[in-house]
Amino acid sequence: MPAHAFVDESIRNDYLLSAAVVATGDLSVARGKLRELCKPGQRRLHMKDENDSRRREILSTLAGLGLQVYLYRTAIAGRPIRDSRDQCLEVLVGALLDLGVTRLVIESCSQDRRDEQVIQPILNRRAATGFVWLHSVPSADPLLWAADATAWAYGKGGDWRRRVECVVADVTQLP
């Protein structure tokens, strides 16, 4: 079944790239449920800005969306964070192609041009003609919030990590 993936990063003691994968038939319902969580005047959800009660509510909602999150981790000690991001992106894009993902949305940041330099050669090598990808601001697609929330909770550890275990399909630890 075709699916879309939504990607965000988290940086703590290591680098974590989070890809929330949603079947195309579930996109509108999942987006709607996440939008419902926004308070009046709030344009997006971002875990670092929420209190613990709201974080629990957001993670509980994620558990019922039918999405799967794939996490890619690597160390950042002793090297530029950009190198860690490149490494995770390379593995992520190949894995998404293998999963049958047809659309990739990455949260836009100051690294968009470099992301293109990493992703496009992979797509060229794999002759991935049916695969579309783009950068987007977080307020434009609520499913980017799912990637953010899962990365935040997994990276935080403890009870927060336990709350997202049901949506984490795989964690790939890279060297």
Rank of each mutant, 00 (worst) to 15 (best):
R79M: 02
V91W: 03
A5E: 14
L89M: 01
Y154L: 04
L59E: 14
R114L: 07
F6S: 02
L59H: 08
E116R: 14
V21L: 10
E116I: 03
P121A: 04
Y15I: 02
R114Q: 09
G66L: 14
T129L: 05
Y15N: 01
E50R: 01
P2Q: 15
G25E: 15
V21S: 05
A128R: 00
H4N: 11
T129N: 08
H135P: 03
L65V: 10
N124V: 07
N13I: 04
M1Y: 07
S108M: 14
V7I: 15
Y154V: 01
L71D: 01
Q173E: 14
R126C: 01
W133C: 00
H4V: 03
I11P: 05
V118M: 13
R55L: 09
E165R: 04
P121K: 05
R79A: 02
F131D: 01
V171Q: 04
R161H: 10
E107V: 14
R114G: 01
R35L: 08
K48S: 10
E107M: 12
V93P: 01
A63W: 02
V167S: 04
G100V: 05
T150G: 03
L65A: 15
V22T: 13
C166P: 15
E116Y: 13
P175Q: 14
A30D: 06
A77Q: 15
L62N: 06
A149P: 01
P40D: 09
L45D: 10
L96Y: 02
R56L: 09
E57R: 06
C166S: 15
R82L: 11
V91E: 13
A147I: 03
D49C: 06
P80V: 09
W133S: 00
G32C: 07
V101A: 05
Q120N: 09
L16R: 06
L143H: 10
L143V: 13
R31F: 06
R163Q: 14
K39S: 12
G155D: 04
E9L: 00
K48A: 04
E90W: 00
G64H: 13
K156P: 08
V69L: 09
L174Q: 05
M47W: 07
Q173V: 15
L97Y: 03
A19T: 00
L45I: 07
Q111C: 12
L174N: 00
V167P: 07
S136I: 13
T61S: 04
L99N: 06
T172C: 09
A19K: 11
A20L: 06
D170L: 11
E107T: 13
G158Q: 08
E90P: 00
V29P: 09
Q42R: 04
S108F: 12
G66P: 09
E107A: 15
I76C: 08
D86R: 11
A75C: 11
D170K: 12
P121Q: 08
I119S: 03
Q87F: 04
D170V: 13
V118K: 04
S28A: 15
V105H: 11
L59N: 09
W160I: 10
R113E: 13
W152R: 04
P175M: 06
S110K: 10
D52K: 05
F131T: 01
V167W: 05
E50G: 01
D83P: 00
R12I: 03
K33R: 09
V69F: 14
R35A: 11
A23K: 13
A20I: 06
L45N: 12
A151D: 02
V118S: 05
